[in-house]
Simulated scan of single mutants.
Amino acid sequence: MIDLNQSDKRQLLFDAARELFLEQGFKKTNVAAITERANVAVGTFYKYFASKEQIFYEVYQAENEKAKRKIVARIDADQSPKEVVKQFLQEIIRTSEQNAILAEWYRNTEASQVLMNYNQECDVQKNSFVYRFLLDNIERWRSSGQFRRDIDANTILALFNVLVLLDNHKEEIGHEHFPQVLELLAEMIIDGLTASS
């Protein structure tokens, strides 16, 4: 039998959880199934993760960041700000629909609540690749005169943050309307930012 070090065991659990979340979703996956797939004892799971919710959050964050990096790599940043943001949002929605882990955010209120709770505890924005992408482009658009200069970059970023907060109210908006509402609001924000000051 191979003696695994701690980081190997943690990674085995993480990989097993990711596979199960992809195959059967958040609700049907449990700690026992994760440990069985990882071929470790249930007690080992709790050395590395406090709960199924914690490992789901970590798997989701890794999956989300990986997807967003791919999305950003596909975007032609030389387009107009409106086209860049529109393409970005469309790609996020499309990618989320195609990835079972990311789709949990849209489909499962229990999983969505887990993600919202953990997001409130952690400052995910500070280290987010997407926020860096947005901030770099906002600065570029302001310097080139494509965005108003009378609104500072952090305020503009806060306007885009409204789109993220909107995610927390998908059910009230209606899942069937959500993608279009998101796109229209983004368009209106950009129209306001590109209007002459």
Rank of each mutant, 00 (worst) to 15 (best):
C122S: 10
L115Q: 03
A100D: 04
T155M: 12
Y131H: 12
R69Y: 12
I92Y: 02
E183T: 10
I173P: 05
H177M: 14
E110F: 07
T109E: 14
V124W: 10
K126F: 09
A73P: 08
A153N: 06
E176A: 05
S96N: 04
Q180I: 02
D167N: 12
E110A: 11
T155D: 12
H169Y: 15
E65L: 15
K86M: 07
V84N: 01
F133Y: 08
R107M: 09
Q87G: 12
R148P: 05
Q79Y: 03
E63H: 06
I151F: 05
N119P: 04
A111E: 00
W141S: 00
L163Q: 04
E110T: 12
K86C: 04
E104Y: 02
I75E: 02
D150K: 03
P81F: 01
E172M: 10
L184Y: 08
A62E: 09
A67F: 13
R69F: 12
L166D: 02
L163I: 10
L102D: 05
I138K: 00
E139H: 14
E139D: 14
R107W: 01
F129P: 00
T155R: 14
E121M: 12
F129L: 09
A67T: 14
E97D: 11
G174T: 08
P179S: 12
K86Q: 03
